[in-house]
């Protein structure tokens, strides 16, 4: 595998100094590391998911087949959590796409301070999720002292307890704030690779701004949009710190998604079996989408 590649075909045999390494030996450490820390624990998760296994009840670990999965997919409260996971990810995705696209289009024009604004606008994406959560929860959304309530009162309304009255919408707003710069960055980069001539040609042909967007910008944008959709879907199905730091999944289970549910089951109730089954479901959900993402990336790689 390696000898043919490393032996120079033309030169006379020269004495080799230094390290003698075969290329495959260079790849194995990284592969082995990833197998040990991702593949192996995942198969253990799958294994645990078929048992009733609670750390609080030592010694008893009966095999229960698909009972944990059945529980997850039939219990109304658990179905609610599955639904929350999808609403949270989908709602945030749609909002970040719309706002991110608008910002990308606005920033793709020439105006004073453009580079500075672009740089500053990345900021909310760089903030640690827990910081975002505690700052929004306390300083912005607190019903009594929070900034938003002050604004609402100033406009003649009553103070709002955002995280209690509109828990899911508030969490989506917070995570949208965090992820919009990601959409903006990728979409703006995609937009900047659009040749100016194409836009000029469309304008010379008398295209309206909408036609220009619909027939010139949008087709060119497809790949960037796909990247945003898939990367965000994968990331947003795993939202955890924002919920941990703000609502703790409440009130009730109003903002509990799969990752937060797994944390509660595994580390508060020690219900390893059920938490594992929920983990497997999250992985399946994510991987169905990731498979699509990989196809897209491979195609993009070949296109270059």
């Amino acid at each position: 595998m390696t000898a043919a590649a490393t032996t120079p075909a033309t030169s006379a045999p020269t004495p080799r100094r230094g390290l003698r390494l075969s290329p495959a030996a260079l790849i194995w450490p990284a592969m082995l590391y990833l197998i040990l820390t991702t593949q192996v624990p995942f198969f253990m998760t799958v294994y645990y998911s078929f048992f009733r296994y609670n750390l609080a009840i030592p010694g008893s670990r009966p095999f229960v087949g698909f009972a944990n999965y059945q529980n997850l997919l039939t219990d109304p409260q658990n179905l609610h959590i599955l639904w929350n996971t999808v609403v949270l990810a989908g709602g945030t995705l749609i909002l970040t796409l719309i706002i991110g696209a608008a910002l990308a289009l606005l920033l793709n024009r020439d105006f004073p301070g453009r580079a500075l604004l672009r740089t500053l606008l990345i900021s909310s994406f760089l903030i640690m999720p827990v910081v975002t959560a505690v700052v929004w929860k306390n300083m912005l959304m607190n019903p009594v002292f929070g900034f938003f309530s002050w604004v609402v009162t100033g406009l003649g309304g009553h103070p709002v307890d955002w995280l209690t009255q509109y828990p899911m919408a508030s969490v989506i707003a917070m995570i949208t704030w965090e992820w919009t710069p990601f959409a903006m960055l990728i979409l703006l980069t995609g937009l900047q690779s659009l040749p100016d001539e194409q836009l000029e040609a469309a304008r010379l042909d008398g295209a309206s701004p909408w036609q220009e967007f619909r027939y010139v910008v949008l087709p060119h944008w497809t790949q960037a949009i796909q990247v945003v959709v898939l990367m965000e879907t994968i990331a947003l199905l795993q939202v955890y710190g924002e919920i941990y730091g703000s609502t703790s999944g409440g009130p009730g289970v109003a903002t509990t998604n799969l990752p937060y549910f797994i944390y509660q089951k595994a580390f508060a109730e020690y219900n390893i079996g059920l938490a594992s089954a929920a983990g497997v479901i999250t992985v399946i959900l994510t991987n169905v989408l990731a498979a699509y993402m990989l196809r897209l990336l491979t195609r993009a790689g070949r296109g270059e």
């Binding site: 991702t38 995942f42 998760t45 795993q238 955890y240 797994i262 944390y263 983990g279 992985v283």
Partner: peptide
Amino acid sequence: VLTWMLSTKFMPAVGVIVPLFL
């Protein structure tokens, strides 16, 4: 190999956290 490595990045942490904790 590259694609496989990338796919491990898509492994949600919740899919491995329980055994890792143990």
